[in-house]
Computed example of a mutant assay.
Amino acid sequence: MKKVIILCCLLALMGCKTKQVHSKSTEKSVPAAEITKEEVPQEKKAYELGKRILMTCNNSKFTPFTRSEATDKVIANSTIENINKICAKYNLKYGLFKDLEFVEKIHIKDNNSNVYRFKALFEYEKANKELRVTMDADNKASAISTKDWKDEFE
């Protein structure tokens, strides 16, 4: 009976072992200080598009994205109604939006796009949000999202 219990415990420990999963589709992230001159225009465009959305929370005025700035998916999802819903939550929880602080760029090899991570600065100190702007190979925003801030890219 003891052998069966020990065997079950060993099997349970082996089954619960966690694995480190490393994605081969991303390159090493590039911190803000290491952005090359060729990458600066795309980073500035990502900053401006992200800031345009979050500034809507302060002044309720949103200029829709054009087809030269964003993909059809982003244009369809960035309606004033959707943005106002998000802004209502953020204004109550974090206060007024101040600015974006560029943190890093991650290159995605699969689709040749870049993810720009910005730390969103709000009025209240407890605000700890991240804005991610994904720019595709055509220099258009293909995704814009907010998440809780984590130091590591996930």
Results as ranks from 00 to 15, higher is better:
K3W: 09
V4N: 06
L7N: 13
L7H: 11
C8G: 09
C9D: 04
A12M: 13
L13A: 12
M14K: 12
G15L: 11
T18I: 12
T18H: 14
K19R: 15
T26D: 01
E27W: 15
S29P: 12
E34T: 06
I35C: 01
E43T: 15
E43P: 13
K45T: 11
K45D: 02
Y47K: 06
G50H: 06
I53S: 09
I53M: 09
M55T: 07
M55E: 11
T56I: 14
T56V: 02
F62T: 12
T71L: 07
D72S: 03
D72F: 05
V74R: 12
N77A: 04
S78N: 07
S78V: 12
T79E: 02
T79C: 05
T79V: 03
E81N: 13
I83S: 11
K85A: 14
I86G: 02
C87W: 00
A88C: 12
Y90F: 01
Y90C: 03
N91F: 01
L92Y: 03
G95Q: 14
L96D: 14
F97E: 00
F97A: 07
F97M: 04
D99N: 05
L100C: 14
L100Q: 05
F102E: 14
F102M: 04
N111M: 11
N112T: 03
N112M: 13
N114Y: 12
V115D: 03
Y116V: 06
Y116I: 09
K119A: 04
F122G: 05
F122P: 09
Y124T: 07
K126C: 11
A127Q: 08
E130G: 07
E130R: 15
V133S: 13
D136H: 01
A137P: 13
N139F: 10
K140M: 13
A141N: 01
A141S: 14
A141R: 09
S142K: 13
W149S: 11
K150H: 09
D151R: 02
F153A: 07
